[in-house]
Protein backbone atom coordinates (compact mmCIF):
# COMPACT_ATOMS: atom_id res chain seq x y z
CA UNK A 1 0.00 0.00 0.00
CA UNK A 2 2.97 2.32 0.34
CA UNK A 3 3.15 2.32 -3.43
CA UNK A 4 0.05 4.44 -3.70
CA UNK A 5 1.74 7.20 -1.75
CA UNK A 6 4.44 7.53 -4.41
CA UNK A 7 3.44 9.00 -7.78
CA UNK A 8 3.84 6.78 -10.81
CA UNK A 9 6.57 8.65 -12.54
CA UNK A 10 9.46 6.43 -13.40
CA UNK A 11 8.56 6.30 -17.09
CA UNK A 12 8.18 10.05 -17.40
CA UNK A 13 11.48 10.58 -15.66
CA UNK A 14 13.45 8.78 -18.36
CA UNK A 15 11.79 10.76 -21.11
CA UNK A 16 12.74 14.18 -19.76
CA UNK A 17 16.19 13.35 -18.49
CA UNK A 18 17.92 14.39 -21.67
CA UNK A 19 16.68 17.93 -21.52
CA UNK A 20 17.91 20.72 -19.25
CA UNK A 21 19.31 19.09 -16.17
CA UNK A 22 19.25 21.43 -13.25
CA UNK A 23 17.95 18.47 -11.32
CA UNK A 24 18.44 14.77 -11.04
CA UNK A 25 15.47 12.42 -11.08
CA UNK A 26 14.57 10.84 -7.77
CA UNK A 27 14.20 7.10 -7.83
CA UNK A 28 11.16 5.41 -6.34
CA UNK A 29 13.11 2.68 -4.59
CA UNK A 30 15.20 5.17 -2.69
CA UNK A 31 12.11 7.06 -1.64
CA UNK A 32 10.30 4.00 -0.36
CA UNK A 33 13.28 3.10 1.76
CA UNK A 34 13.44 6.53 3.29
CA UNK A 35 9.73 6.84 3.98
CA UNK A 36 8.48 6.91 7.54
CA UNK A 37 6.05 4.08 6.91
CA UNK A 38 8.84 1.57 6.39
CA UNK A 39 10.23 2.39 9.81
CA UNK A 40 6.95 1.58 11.50
CA UNK A 41 6.64 -1.59 9.49
CA UNK A 42 10.03 -2.66 10.70
CA UNK A 43 8.97 -2.05 14.28
CA UNK A 44 5.87 -4.18 13.76
CA UNK A 45 8.01 -6.87 12.22
CA UNK A 46 10.42 -6.74 15.14
CA UNK A 47 7.67 -7.08 17.69
CA UNK A 48 6.21 -10.03 15.81
CA UNK A 49 9.60 -11.71 15.73
CA UNK A 50 10.03 -11.23 19.46
CA UNK A 51 6.63 -12.74 20.13
CA UNK A 52 7.36 -15.58 17.76
CA UNK A 53 10.25 -16.57 19.97
CA UNK A 54 8.43 -15.90 23.20
CA UNK A 55 5.31 -17.88 22.32
CA UNK A 56 6.28 -20.19 19.48
CA UNK A 57 3.22 -22.35 19.89
CA UNK A 58 0.50 -19.81 20.29
CA UNK A 59 1.46 -16.58 18.57
CA UNK A 60 2.50 -17.39 15.01
CA UNK A 61 -0.51 -19.58 14.18
CA UNK A 62 -2.70 -18.38 11.34
CA UNK A 63 -5.71 -18.60 13.60
CA UNK A 64 -4.19 -16.32 16.20
CA UNK A 65 -2.81 -13.79 13.72
CA UNK A 66 -6.12 -13.47 11.93
CA UNK A 67 -7.88 -13.10 15.21
CA UNK A 68 -5.52 -10.31 16.20
CA UNK A 69 -6.12 -8.65 12.86
CA UNK A 70 -9.85 -8.81 13.42
CA UNK A 71 -9.43 -7.32 16.86
CA UNK A 72 -7.58 -4.26 15.70
CA UNK A 73 -9.57 -3.81 12.51
CA UNK A 74 -12.20 -1.67 14.25
CA UNK A 75 -9.52 0.63 15.63
CA UNK A 76 -7.76 0.72 12.28
CA UNK A 77 -10.87 1.69 10.35
CA UNK A 78 -11.63 4.49 12.77
CA UNK A 79 -7.97 5.53 12.76
CA UNK A 80 -8.13 6.15 9.04
CA UNK A 81 -10.63 8.91 9.69
CA UNK A 82 -8.67 10.26 12.64
CA UNK A 83 -5.59 10.31 10.42
CA UNK A 84 -7.21 12.77 8.06
CA UNK A 85 -8.22 15.01 10.94
CA UNK A 86 -4.72 14.93 12.39
CA UNK A 87 -3.19 15.71 9.01
CA UNK A 88 -5.23 18.90 8.94
CA UNK A 89 -3.81 19.86 12.32
CA UNK A 90 -7.00 19.03 14.16
CA UNK A 91 -8.03 16.31 16.57
CA UNK A 92 -11.21 14.33 17.05
CA UNK A 93 -11.78 13.06 20.57
CA UNK A 94 -15.31 11.93 19.88
CA UNK A 95 -14.52 8.91 17.69
CA UNK A 96 -15.00 6.39 20.48
CA UNK A 97 -18.43 7.79 21.23
CA UNK A 98 -19.35 7.85 17.54
CA UNK A 99 -18.42 4.18 17.32
CA UNK A 100 -20.88 3.47 20.09
CA UNK A 101 -23.51 5.79 18.69
CA UNK A 102 -23.32 4.32 15.20
CA UNK A 103 -23.56 0.77 16.50
CA UNK A 104 -26.43 1.53 18.82
CA UNK A 105 -28.36 3.51 16.24
CA UNK A 106 -28.07 0.70 13.71
CA UNK A 107 -29.06 -1.90 16.28
CA UNK A 108 -31.99 0.15 17.43
CA UNK A 109 -33.30 0.67 13.91
CA UNK A 110 -33.13 -3.03 13.20
CA UNK A 111 -34.47 -4.24 16.51
CA UNK A 112 -37.11 -1.68 17.42
CA UNK A 113 -38.27 -0.49 14.03
CA UNK A 114 -37.59 -3.65 12.05
CA UNK A 115 -35.62 -1.83 9.39
CA UNK A 116 -33.74 -4.09 7.00
CA UNK A 117 -30.10 -4.67 7.78
CA UNK A 118 -28.52 -2.88 4.77
CA UNK A 119 -30.76 0.17 5.22
CA UNK A 120 -30.08 0.28 8.93
CA UNK A 121 -26.35 0.17 8.32
CA UNK A 122 -26.55 3.04 5.89
CA UNK A 123 -28.59 5.05 8.36
CA UNK A 124 -26.14 4.18 11.11
CA UNK A 125 -23.26 5.45 8.98
CA UNK A 126 -25.25 8.55 8.22
CA UNK A 127 -25.77 9.03 11.93
CA UNK A 128 -22.01 8.96 12.42
CA UNK A 129 -21.69 11.43 9.61
CA UNK A 130 -24.17 13.73 11.32
CA UNK A 131 -22.07 13.78 14.49
CA UNK A 132 -19.11 14.51 12.26
CA UNK A 133 -21.10 17.35 10.72
CA UNK A 134 -21.78 18.64 14.19
CA UNK A 135 -18.05 18.63 14.87
CA UNK A 136 -17.46 20.44 11.60
CA UNK A 137 -20.06 23.05 12.50
CA UNK A 138 -18.51 23.69 15.92
CA UNK A 139 -15.05 23.98 14.40
CA UNK A 140 -15.63 25.90 11.19
CA UNK A 141 -18.63 28.07 12.05
CA UNK A 142 -18.36 28.56 15.78
CA UNK A 143 -14.57 28.60 15.54
CA UNK A 144 -14.09 26.32 18.51
CA UNK A 145 -10.68 24.68 18.78
CA UNK A 146 -11.03 21.06 17.62
CA UNK A 147 -9.93 19.75 21.00
CA UNK A 148 -12.74 21.55 22.78
CA UNK A 149 -15.36 20.93 20.13
CA UNK A 150 -14.81 17.19 19.95
CA UNK A 151 -14.49 16.97 23.71
CA UNK A 152 -18.05 18.21 23.79
CA UNK A 153 -19.25 15.88 21.04
CA UNK A 154 -17.63 13.00 22.88
CA UNK A 155 -20.19 13.40 25.63
CA UNK A 156 -23.01 14.41 23.32
CA UNK A 157 -22.67 11.29 21.17
CA UNK A 158 -22.21 8.99 24.11
CA UNK A 159 -25.23 10.55 25.76
CA UNK A 160 -27.29 9.94 22.63
CA UNK A 161 -26.20 6.32 22.66
CA UNK A 162 -27.35 5.91 26.24
CA UNK A 163 -30.57 7.76 25.49
CA UNK A 164 -31.45 5.50 22.55
CA UNK A 165 -30.91 2.29 24.50
CA UNK A 166 -31.77 3.56 27.95
CA UNK A 167 -28.70 1.64 29.02
CA UNK A 168 -29.88 -1.72 27.72
CA UNK A 169 -27.98 -3.84 25.26
CA UNK A 170 -29.66 -4.08 21.87
CA UNK A 171 -29.67 -7.55 20.37
CA UNK A 172 -29.01 -7.77 16.65
CA UNK A 173 -30.51 -10.04 13.99
CA UNK A 174 -28.46 -12.90 12.59
CA UNK A 175 -28.20 -11.37 9.18
CA UNK A 176 -26.40 -8.47 10.74
CA UNK A 177 -24.11 -10.64 12.85
CA UNK A 178 -23.05 -12.52 9.74
CA UNK A 179 -21.43 -9.34 8.52
CA UNK A 180 -19.11 -9.29 11.47
CA UNK A 181 -18.72 -12.96 12.14
CA UNK A 182 -18.33 -14.27 8.62
CA UNK A 183 -15.18 -15.32 6.80
CA UNK A 184 -13.82 -15.02 3.30
CA UNK A 185 -11.87 -18.23 3.14
CA UNK A 186 -9.75 -18.19 6.27
CA UNK A 187 -9.86 -14.39 6.63
CA UNK A 188 -12.41 -12.80 8.93
CA UNK A 189 -14.66 -10.31 7.15
CA UNK A 190 -13.73 -7.34 9.36
CA UNK A 191 -10.13 -7.73 8.18
CA UNK A 192 -11.35 -7.66 4.59
CA UNK A 193 -13.34 -4.50 5.29
CA UNK A 194 -10.26 -2.92 6.85
CA UNK A 195 -8.14 -3.71 3.81
CA UNK A 196 -10.74 -2.42 1.37
CA UNK A 197 -11.40 0.77 3.29
CA UNK A 198 -7.68 1.24 3.74
CA UNK A 199 -7.04 0.92 0.03
CA UNK A 200 -9.83 3.31 -0.85
CA UNK A 201 -8.58 6.01 1.48
CA UNK A 202 -4.93 5.47 0.66
CA UNK A 203 -5.78 6.16 -2.96
CA UNK A 204 -8.02 9.04 -1.95
CA UNK A 205 -5.31 10.73 0.09
CA UNK A 206 -2.42 9.97 -2.17
CA UNK A 207 -3.82 10.39 -5.61
CA UNK A 208 -6.77 12.70 -5.67
CA UNK A 209 -7.05 16.46 -5.79
CA UNK A 210 -9.00 16.54 -2.52
CA UNK A 211 -6.40 14.35 -0.85
CA UNK A 212 -3.62 16.68 -1.94
CA UNK A 213 -5.57 19.65 -0.62
CA UNK A 214 -5.99 17.95 2.75
CA UNK A 215 -2.23 17.60 3.07
CA UNK A 216 -1.70 21.16 1.87
CA UNK A 217 -4.14 22.53 4.44
CA UNK A 218 -2.33 20.66 7.16
CA UNK A 219 1.06 21.78 5.95
CA UNK A 220 0.27 25.49 5.95
CA UNK A 221 -3.32 26.60 6.33
CA UNK A 222 -2.65 30.21 5.36
CA UNK A 223 -0.79 29.31 2.20
CA UNK A 224 -3.50 26.81 1.33
CA UNK A 225 -6.16 29.48 1.68
CA UNK A 226 -4.26 31.92 -0.51
CA UNK A 227 -3.86 29.17 -3.10
CA UNK A 228 -7.61 28.94 -3.47
CA UNK A 229 -8.32 25.92 -1.28
CA UNK A 230 -11.66 26.17 0.49
CA UNK A 231 -10.57 25.66 4.08
CA UNK A 232 -14.03 25.32 5.57
CA UNK A 233 -15.12 22.80 3.00
CA UNK A 234 -12.11 20.56 3.43
CA UNK A 235 -12.32 20.63 7.21
CA UNK A 236 -16.02 19.85 7.02
CA UNK A 237 -15.35 16.91 4.75
CA UNK A 238 -12.64 15.53 6.96
CA UNK A 239 -14.72 15.56 10.13
CA UNK A 240 -17.76 14.11 8.41
CA UNK A 241 -15.66 11.29 6.93
CA UNK A 242 -14.22 10.61 10.35
CA UNK A 243 -17.72 10.35 11.74
CA UNK A 244 -18.73 7.90 9.06
CA UNK A 245 -15.61 5.80 9.48
CA UNK A 246 -15.97 5.72 13.25
CA UNK A 247 -19.56 4.61 12.88
CA UNK A 248 -18.37 1.93 10.45
CA UNK A 249 -15.85 0.72 12.99
CA UNK A 250 -18.51 0.57 15.66
CA UNK A 251 -21.03 -1.18 13.42
CA UNK A 252 -18.56 -3.85 12.37
CA UNK A 253 -17.55 -4.38 15.99
CA UNK A 254 -21.11 -4.79 17.17
CA UNK A 255 -21.83 -7.13 14.27
CA UNK A 256 -18.98 -9.30 15.46
CA UNK A 257 -20.34 -9.29 18.99
CA UNK A 258 -23.89 -9.85 17.83
CA UNK A 259 -25.16 -7.09 20.11
CA UNK A 260 -25.00 -3.32 20.25
CA UNK A 261 -23.91 -2.04 23.63
CA UNK A 262 -24.19 1.62 24.48
CA UNK A 263 -20.74 1.40 26.03
CA UNK A 264 -19.14 0.23 22.81
CA UNK A 265 -16.03 2.21 21.99
CA UNK A 266 -15.68 3.67 25.48
CA UNK A 267 -12.12 4.89 25.71
CA UNK A 268 -11.24 3.72 22.19
CA UNK A 269 -10.39 7.24 21.06
CA UNK A 270 -7.05 6.99 22.85
CA UNK A 271 -6.12 3.84 20.93
CA UNK A 272 -7.25 5.41 17.68
CA UNK A 273 -5.22 8.56 18.19
CA UNK A 274 -2.22 6.56 19.37
CA UNK A 275 -2.44 4.41 16.24
CA UNK A 276 -2.26 7.48 14.02
CA UNK A 277 0.77 8.94 15.77
CA UNK A 278 2.61 5.63 16.03
CA UNK A 279 1.95 5.31 12.33
CA UNK A 280 4.09 8.33 11.66
CA UNK A 281 1.80 11.32 11.56
CA UNK A 282 3.43 14.56 12.59
CA UNK A 283 2.19 16.47 15.59
CA UNK A 284 2.32 19.61 13.44
CA UNK A 285 0.01 18.28 10.80
CA UNK A 286 0.70 17.90 7.11
CA UNK A 287 1.89 14.31 7.12
CA UNK A 288 0.80 10.76 7.87
CA UNK A 289 -0.28 7.76 5.80
CA UNK A 290 -3.12 5.26 5.81
CA UNK A 291 -0.68 2.39 5.87
CA UNK A 292 1.01 4.01 8.82
CA UNK A 293 -2.22 4.34 10.77
CA UNK A 294 -3.18 0.74 10.11
CA UNK A 295 0.29 -0.41 11.10
CA UNK A 296 0.03 1.64 14.27
CA UNK A 297 -3.23 -0.11 15.12
CA UNK A 298 -1.58 -3.42 14.29
CA UNK A 299 1.33 -2.73 16.63
CA UNK A 300 -1.01 -2.09 19.52
CA UNK A 301 -3.15 -5.10 18.67
CA UNK A 302 -0.17 -7.41 18.44
CA UNK A 303 1.24 -6.18 21.71
CA UNK A 304 -2.06 -6.70 23.49
CA UNK A 305 -2.32 -10.18 22.08
CA UNK A 306 1.26 -11.01 22.97
CA UNK A 307 0.88 -9.89 26.54
CA UNK A 308 -2.25 -11.99 26.97
CA UNK A 309 -0.51 -15.04 25.49
CA UNK A 310 2.37 -14.45 27.86
CA UNK A 311 -0.08 -14.58 30.73
CA UNK A 312 0.70 -11.08 31.82
CA UNK A 313 -1.83 -9.82 34.34
CA UNK A 314 -4.48 -7.73 32.62
CA UNK A 315 -3.74 -4.88 34.99
CA UNK A 316 -0.24 -4.56 33.60
CA UNK A 317 -1.34 -4.75 29.99
CA UNK A 318 -2.41 -1.10 30.02
CA UNK A 319 0.92 -0.06 31.52
CA UNK A 320 2.76 -2.06 28.88
CA UNK A 321 0.75 -0.58 26.02
CA UNK A 322 1.54 2.96 27.13
CA UNK A 323 5.23 2.21 27.47
CA UNK A 324 5.42 0.58 24.10
CA UNK A 325 3.67 3.47 22.41
CA UNK A 326 6.39 5.76 23.71
CA UNK A 327 9.15 3.34 22.73
CA UNK A 328 7.74 2.77 19.25
CA UNK A 329 7.56 6.47 18.44
CA UNK A 330 11.00 7.09 19.97
CA UNK A 331 12.52 4.38 17.79
CA UNK A 332 10.93 5.93 14.75
CA UNK A 333 12.24 9.39 15.64
CA UNK A 334 15.68 7.87 16.05
CA UNK A 335 15.42 6.24 12.64
CA UNK A 336 14.36 9.53 11.05
CA UNK A 337 17.27 11.39 12.60
CA UNK A 338 19.71 8.68 11.62
CA UNK A 339 18.46 8.99 8.06
CA UNK A 340 19.04 12.74 8.17
CA UNK A 341 22.60 12.28 9.39
CA UNK A 342 23.23 9.75 6.66
CA UNK A 343 21.99 12.22 4.07
CA UNK A 344 24.40 14.82 5.38
CA UNK A 345 27.26 12.60 4.33
CA UNK A 346 26.03 12.22 0.78
CA UNK A 347 26.99 14.85 -1.71
CA UNK A 348 25.08 14.94 -4.93
CA UNK A 349 25.03 17.48 -7.77
Amino acid sequence: MSRVQEPVKQKKVEKLEKSECYYKPDYISRRIFRSETVGIFLILFLICMVLKFACPETFPTLDNLLSVARQFSYIAITAIGELMVIITNGIDLSVGSIMGFGAVLTGFLMHEWGILVPAAIILGLAGGGMIGLLNAFFITRLHLPPFIATLGTLSIARGLAYAITKGYTVPCPDAFAAIGQGYLGPIPLPVIYMVIIGLIFAIFLGRTVVGRRIYALGGNEEAAEVSGINIKRIKCLVYILTGVLAAAGGIICSARLGVAQSTLGLGYELDVIAAVYIGGASANGGSGTVLGAITGAAIMGVIRNGLVLLNVSPYWVQFAIGSIIVIAVAIDQFRARYNQKRQLKEVKL
Binding site: N220, E222, V226
Partner: peptide, 30 residues
Protein backbone atom coordinates in the same frame (compact mmCIF):
# COMPACT_ATOMS: atom_id res chain seq x y z
CA UNK B 1 1.81 32.46 3.10
CA UNK B 2 3.27 31.37 -0.19
CA UNK B 3 4.65 27.89 0.26
CA UNK B 4 3.87 24.66 2.03
CA UNK B 5 7.36 24.17 3.38
CA UNK B 6 6.97 20.46 4.10
CA UNK B 7 5.95 19.70 0.54
CA UNK B 8 8.04 19.27 -2.58
CA UNK B 9 8.65 21.66 -5.46
CA UNK B 10 6.23 19.64 -7.55
CA UNK B 11 3.44 19.70 -4.99
CA UNK B 12 3.84 23.40 -4.37
CA UNK B 13 4.11 24.23 -8.04
CA UNK B 14 0.88 22.47 -8.95
CA UNK B 15 -1.14 23.58 -5.95
CA UNK B 16 -3.31 26.24 -7.60
CA UNK B 17 -3.64 24.49 -10.94
CA UNK B 18 -4.89 21.21 -9.48
CA UNK B 19 -8.28 21.81 -11.06
CA UNK B 20 -6.72 21.39 -14.47
CA UNK B 21 -4.50 18.49 -13.58
CA UNK B 22 -7.00 15.81 -12.80
CA UNK B 23 -9.21 13.22 -14.42
CA UNK B 24 -12.38 12.56 -12.39
CA UNK B 25 -10.71 13.81 -9.26
CA UNK B 26 -7.56 11.74 -9.66
CA UNK B 27 -4.37 13.71 -10.12
CA UNK B 28 -2.64 13.10 -13.42
CA UNK B 29 0.88 12.76 -12.10
CA UNK B 30 2.50 12.76 -15.50
Amino acid sequence: QGLILGMSVRENGSLVALNQLHRAGFIKFG
